[in-house]
Design a protein around this nucleic acid. Structure first.
Lengths: 157, 157
DNA sequence: GCCACATTGGTGACGCGTCACCTATTTGAT
DNA sequence: ATCAAATAGGTGACGCGTCACCAATGTGGC
């Protein structure tokens, strides 16, 4: 009951690496999500939004710019911001210059939440990833990931 | 408007690597999903389920075993199988030995779908990942990912 | 046999993410 | 000034994923 293969399959080494990679991805993301949920009631996407907002001048940014910064669809931003607004993490304001536009602004609650979440987030990344890698490995991985991204046409250009 | 940091932050190299990694993950997953959707109307999770089923004797497996094989919650399996059943990719049968149990079986349609999807899937993984890596790098990455997983207590056993 | 307890699988609610599509506003060619 | 086209943002439907919870069935102690 196997799949017919008339295409160059992955060899054992490749298969092993690919599987480890995919598992690790899922596990890392799940762990980060869980820890931040526990620390500050934030999901991963919540955190990403708040990071961008908290790094923006005056803690506010146009929806489209937020979408660009996160590489999200505008519709996704819209949905997510709507959910976050209900929890008072951000608020939306009309844009004076452009009648179509809207600003997303971080609230006091949002600011507090990200400040509560950030240290644990970094600690976890450090513990799960960087503590188990040498400086050389970090550099090399950075180079490899960057290479794969450019070859695949993913570059940020 | 930045986050206060009283915790050892990531240095530039680490930050760069981490960002590339997270971007690459998202991009790879999205690409694989998109291609399989186009090739065979399957999502990534659909594919994973069908792979396990097609590798099982007689193309059927107990729900709990499927959950274990995929490292999914049983509830997730239940939801996903229900959706796939509507599309006639799999079907559910009661289990004769255990009145609580249920078998999930791959259908003709499901078998056809995975056979249509598999070559393109492998081709894409090869193109996006392995064509840009040396054999040594593959081995090394496999070792690194495995190391991170065991240190984090993610090991499969 | 009886009963506490564990296990199997499923459901509903809700957050996340995409797609198709919509309205309102701005822009720019004429 | 006018009007077609582009752009900003939002909405609804639906698939994906988790959590809390449930009914049904099996298991072991007595």
């Amino acid at each position: 009951m196997a799949v017919t293969n008339d295409i160059p399959w992955l060899n054992d080494d490749e298969q092993h690496m690919w599987r480890q990679w995919m598992w690790l991805n899922a596990e890392l993301l799940a762990t980060l999500n869980r820890e931040m949920q526990a620390d500050a009631g934030l999901s991963n996407p919540d955190y990403q939004v708040l990071v961008v907002l908290s790094e923006s001048p005056e803690g506010r940014i146009r929806v489209s710019d937020l979408a660009a910064a996160l590489q999200w669809e505008r519709s996704r931003v819209s949905h997510h911001v709507a959910r976050m607004e209900k929890r008072d993490l951000v608020c939306r304001r009309g844009c004076p210059d452009d009648g179509r536009g809207a600003y997303v602004r971080i609230t006091e609650t949002g600011q507090a939440a990200i400040e509560r979440a950030a240290p644990g987030h970094v600690r976890t990344v450090r513990k799960l990833v960087f503590d188990a890698l040498t400086a050389d490995e970090v550099t090399q991985l950075g180079e490899i990931f960057h290479r794969l991204r450019s070859r695949a046409g993913f570059s940020t250009e």
